[in-house]
Write a protein that binds this DNA or RNA. Structure first.
Lengths: 160, 160
DNA sequence: CACTATTCAGTTGTGCACAACTGAATAGTG
DNA sequence: CACTATTCAGTTGTGCACAACTGAATAGTG
């Protein structure tokens, strides 16, 4: 049987080339479609992710957003400042814990949600997938991310 | 039957949240694993993609690399300068067409290929997928990218 | 042949991802 | 209680993606 261990290195490098490229290309293609769909909302793709989280939870500390999106403050701090400058969110130090900053959508930010309703359908149409395939892709990607995130760097080093 | 048209907007926005996040997370997780695996080669993930293409073709104009990886000169020019500074590639104006710049691996750049042999296997192991699943994922992502940005499938196929 | 359009690599500027760090606030310990 | 460790948001610096642009070389047109 053909397995990971029986494929020649040369073919494997080639396969890697392909999956590497496919993933990179799919991600950038997705970004491109979102960029187009989000243009009228005045949001970038990561900013849209943040707004989705805030629409769902009402308000969250920076840390809470970071946990949900797996982003650190180095990425979030400037992004949230831009969302604040755009008038979509409000940031204020928590009175209970002065280390924490609470972020919540402004009236304008909340109003954006209505406009955003059209976005998912546009993306879904662009993918050419039906509902079941979309869910399957979501689950596959999620499972993959969990596996990849959970990999101990030391394990990785020892498997070569 | 449940289709794209019968799902309520609210659920759809939620689903979008999920697939959006899954894709984003999977991409970043992949990047993280590659970052680790490529550390000893002194390459970033996009730089690795460029080297893979050069190992396969020997030498290519900047435009040729861009076509294969769907990257424009705005991304490639500085990236190639860094690869040149690292001693892995050589860039020179083409004598036949002074507009074009030919890029090819140096002796050190070619030598990297031997080290890179270990990389794909490490990535494959980290994904926890078997060979058939990896191929399926590759094909799905490639098909998705094609649909999303209207790339000619023949071009994609010729990349690997 | 002269002139315009196109091609090519490169630059500039914006935004994101992330590592490494800072400084302030809080939690936990003896 | 005093002191250390941890938590939190933020900053700095590097690299990538991409839009919009520049300038030089070449192709294509009348």
């Amino acid at each position: 049987m053909e397995t990971l261990d029986t494929v020649p290195d040369e073919d494997f490098l080639r396969l890697d080339h392909q999956i590497c490229f496919s993933l990179h290309a799919a991600t950038r293609a997705f970004n491109g479609v979102y960029r187009e769909a989000l243009k009228e909302l005045g949001l970038t793709y990561p900013q849209y992710l943040v707004m989705l989280v805030l629409w769902e939870h009402g308000e969250l500390p920076v840390k809470g957003i970071g946990e949900r999106l797996r982003l650190d403050s180095g990425t979030l701090s400037p992004l949230l400042k831009r969302l604040e400058a755009a008038g979509y969110v409000e940031r204020r130090r928590s009175p209970e814990d002065e280390r924490s900053v609470t972020v919540r959508p402004t009236v304008e930010g909340s109003a954006l949600k209505a406009k955003a309703r059209a976005v998912p359908r546009r993306i879904a149409t662009a993918t050419g997938l039906d509902l079941e395939e979309i869910r399957e892709l979501r689950d596959r990607l999620a499972a993959l991310a969990v596996r990849l995130d959970g990999v101990d760097p030391d394990d990785l080093a020892s498997c070569g």
